Amino acid sequence: MHTHAEDVIQWRRHLHRNPELSHLENNTTDFLVRILTEHGLNPQRLPSTGATVDIGPAHAPLVAFRGDIDALPLTEATGLDYSSEIPGVMHACGHDIHATIVLGLMCALADYVHREGEAALPVRVRGIFQPAEEVMDGGAIDVVAAGALHEVQQIFAVHCEPKLRVGQIGVRTGAITSASDVVEIILRGPGGHTSRPHLTADLVHAAGQVVTQLPALLTRRVDPRSGTVMAFGAINGGATFNAIPQEVRIRGTFRTAQVGVWRQGEDFLRELVGQIVAPTGAELEIRYTKGVPPVINDDVCTALMAQAVKDVDPVALKEAPQSSGGEDFSWYLEHVPGSMARLGSWSGTGAKPDLHQPDIVFDERCLTVGIRLFAGVIDQYRAEI
């Protein structure tokens, strides 16, 4: 890493300057494939965008590392000299860093195998460069369908954490993220004059009942230890102060850290919203879009990550909090055990930024930390042998 740290930084900056939206990561894929090929590897393109690449003894256990590659529809406001050159598109979630860490890992392993021979690796390693993490029809499902988990026994990932100082790694057994579903509630009625609400269905009143009562009722129907959160982000309806509208739309998210609650969430919501709206006389339509399940970290895989951190710096190991955010790494864990860690990316000075913001800046020193973490996980298998 001392020898190639500048190369790694330049790879990341190239990706940052040239972000691409979900399912459109063609140039990103071309770049990753080119660098991997230049290091003597044989990457395989996925059916749309993204790629996988393997290295190591053919009959050894197969361990995978995932890096997501898509960006967000944001206009960058960091002022960095390597800011996005694509209008309205930005890497504001650290996917350029995640992808570069897996890229750096695979290139480092290629150099290592070139010197020491393939048998020197204790496991076979697969790098997965996954498209479309940021959208509801996420790329993880397509990657799994394409066979990227074939023979994989365990899988690992990191996510940039701007609340942790660079050099620190946050791990957690069990749920580290939440399921995230989108809920749209549509209320309809004949409309009317605000002086005579008793002669119509007052949709604004009905919407108020939904947004206040639904989250409260969920706390009495769902185990409070499940980390279940119902919150609304948009209410649209009406055009003037003295007319009751004919339609009001409410949009929000349903999030939970328990898979069982997630699987029942739609039924809960349909039942409760129906009960809330019934007395108002409004017609009701609910459009429920399933998102991703929670990321449930396997205890053994998390222990491997934790030990890899402690082998380098015991003080760097932190306990990560459970987040209400969603992450489609969870789809891999429906098939094989694995673990995602939080990668400290705050410089240690100034305010701690938040993800998905146009002015977020990640400390690039986290790149080498992430690569060493993944290499340390591979070393744990050597220790087991």
Rank of each mutant, 00 (worst) to 15 (best):
V369A: 04
G238Q: 03
C160N: 14
H16E: 12
L15Q: 02
P353R: 02
A175I: 04
G265Q: 09
S324Y: 04
I128A: 07
V309W: 03
H59T: 14
T240W: 01
A308G: 03
H14Y: 15
L333R: 03
G191P: 02
L164Q: 11
E334N: 12
V152N: 06
A99L: 08
V8D: 03
G376V: 08
V261C: 01
I371C: 04
R263V: 06
I55F: 05
T28N: 11
E76T: 05
T49N: 03
S22M: 04
D70W: 01
A278V: 12
G238T: 07
V123D: 00
P224F: 07
A71H: 05
R172Q: 12
W11N: 11
N18Y: 14
P73K: 01
G281F: 10
T194N: 06
I235T: 06
D96I: 02
L304V: 09
D181M: 05
A92L: 05
G50P: 09
R34D: 15
M136N: 01
E85V: 01
R372E: 12
A92R: 03
Y112R: 13
F241R: 12
L36C: 07
R188G: 08
A64H: 08
R124C: 06
R255W: 04
Q322E: 08
G281L: 10
L218N: 00
T256S: 13
T219M: 07
A146R: 02
L217Q: 15
V166G: 04
C366Q: 10
H14T: 15
K163R: 14
E118S: 14
V158S: 02
T52V: 15
A375L: 15
I276N: 08
G56C: 12
V123M: 01
A320F: 04
L203S: 10
C93Q: 01
E319I: 14
A110T: 07
H4T: 15
G67N: 11
V361F: 00
A201Q: 02
I176M: 08
